[in-house]
């Protein structure tokens, strides 16, 4: 089963390699990984998407906690959380297709971030499913290049 795990770590060189080394060394999967600094300069945040049965996910979480530079680990999957991913897509767009690309962009609330005479570059934000849907449609027109961020996730505030 797919799990989204939120990890706070010391913002130090080598820490990411401890985390990824743990996954490769123990044969755990990483589906995606997002890392960036936080408001606190000493802390970085990793959102990690992985897959495995219950026993493996439990091991992943415990093993992460065991790393000295890991401050906090939360499995967001069983909690109510928001998940977002972003993609940049360069789409071939000539003649009649230019309007079609813009229409799709409009429907899915994508932004056009770069324009050339025969391409558009779109920025798409949403869940993985939404991104897949847009990319599926754009593929029929002709995608030149795609980059995706992997998932970011955050727990929803509990409502009183």
């Amino acid at each position: 089963m797919r799990h989204v795990i939120s990890v706070s770590v010391d913002n130090e060189p080598g820490v990411l390699s401890r985390v990824t080394g743990l996954f490769s060394g123990r044969g755990f999967n990483i589906e995606s990984l997002c890392v960036a600094a936080t408001m606190n300069q000493e802390v970085s945040h990793i959102t990690l998407v992985t897959a495995g049965n219950e026993m493996i996910i439990e091991q992943i979480i415990k093993q992460l906690r065991k790393l000295i530079n890991v401050i906090k680990v939360v499995d967001l999957t069983p909690t109510d959380h928001v998940e977002r991913e972003m993609a940049l897509v360069k789409v071939k767009a000539e003649d009649r297709q230019r309007a079609e690309v813009l229409r799709i962009a409009d429907i899915f609330r994508c932004r056009v971030v770069d324009v050339s005479p025969n391409t558009y570059t779109l920025e798409i934000t949403g869940t993985s499913e939404k991104l897949n849907a847009v990319l599926g449609l754009l593929k029929t027109i002709g995608i030149q290049e795609v980059v995706r961020t992997g998932s970011l996730a955050m727990q929803r505030t509990k409502k009183e």
Partner: peptide, 8 residues
């Protein structure tokens, strides 16, 4: 003492 040893 090591939680990772348990149920590994």
């Amino acid at each position: 003492i090591d939680p990772t040893s348990i149920s590994k």
